[in-house]
Amino acid sequence: MRHDVVEGIALARVGAQLVGVEMERVLAVLERPDLTPLPCVPASCKGITLWQGQAVPVYDLKKALYLPAPEDDKGKEEEVILVARWRHALVGLCADEVLRVIDAPPLDPPTFDSPHVRGEGTIDGKVLYVLDLDSEYPGLA
């Protein structure tokens, strides 16, 4: 049963996957910023970057969302980082590129177990995963 509609999402490509991030939560798109690695954080956290004087944790969306990684994606570094508001904090979300802003199609519940996917839809013949930025932070869900 279709149950959810999200208006205005930034459509990002992450490997062969499409991920949607609510546009009203996106504050900036950074191209290859410096990352500082951190010890003892979840595997999905690639480190922190500085944005407007704040330390922003940066997450690998494939790992944070438990997305399958095609063989030809492995080892590739993402090109951009979306700075977005996740609950009360700013986070950076790694993607290969930001494609455009769309109104998301009607969403179905996710077909796989991920605490951070709000729903799935189809766009351009591909599966779109819309991120749930009100879910618990990565590594804590």
Binding site: T36, C40, V41, I48, A55, W86, A89, V91, G139
Partner: peptide, 21 residues
């Protein structure tokens, strides 16, 4: 000095005071 971001506090809060730019 900047504070630890909230998502990282459970992992690093006992060991780091923050970050020094």
């Amino acid at each position: 000095v900047v504070d630890l971001p909230e998502p990282l506090r459970p992992f690093l809060g006992a060991h780091l005071d923050g970050f020094w730019i």
